[in-house]
Computed example of a mutant assay.
Amino acid sequence: MGTLRTDTKPFQREEPQHSRLRNRDENYDYEAGRFKGFLRCDRQQCGEIVVVAGSFTTEFHHDFDHEAEQPITHEVTTYRPHLMSPAPEIIQYPKKLNKDSKEHLLRSFVLFWVDYASCANRLRIVVEYLLDQFGIERENAKGDFLNLASRIEKLTKTKPDQADYLNALRWLGNAGSHDGNVDFNDLLWCLDMLEHAMIELFEERDAKRRTEAKRIIAVKGKPDVRR
Rank of each mutant, 00 (worst) to 15 (best):
A213S: 13
D42Q: 00
L131N: 03
E14F: 11
M193L: 12
N147F: 07
Y93E: 01
D63W: 07
L123H: 00
Q162A: 14
A68Y: 07
M193C: 13
D100K: 15
R138T: 12
E59M: 06
F184N: 10
I199G: 08
D206S: 15
A87H: 01
D63T: 14
K214T: 05
G180V: 04
D179V: 11
S55E: 07
E67R: 08
E103P: 00
D65P: 11
C41W: 03
P94S: 09
K222L: 15
F11M: 07
D7S: 09
Q17V: 06
W171G: 02
D115N: 15
K208Y: 05
K159T: 13
T6V: 03
H178S: 13
G221W: 03
A197I: 03
Q12K: 09
Y79I: 03
G54W: 00
S108P: 05
K220C: 08
R13K: 15
Q92L: 06
K154V: 05
V126Y: 01
M198F: 00
H82E: 13
Q12E: 13
E69R: 13
A68T: 12
D206M: 11
V51E: 13
Y79V: 02
R138C: 04
N174G: 00
E137D: 09
D144S: 12
L97G: 04
Q70G: 12
P86E: 08
D161Q: 10
T8R: 13
L123K: 01
E26T: 13
A68I: 06
D29T: 11
S108Q: 14
F11Y: 15
D7H: 14
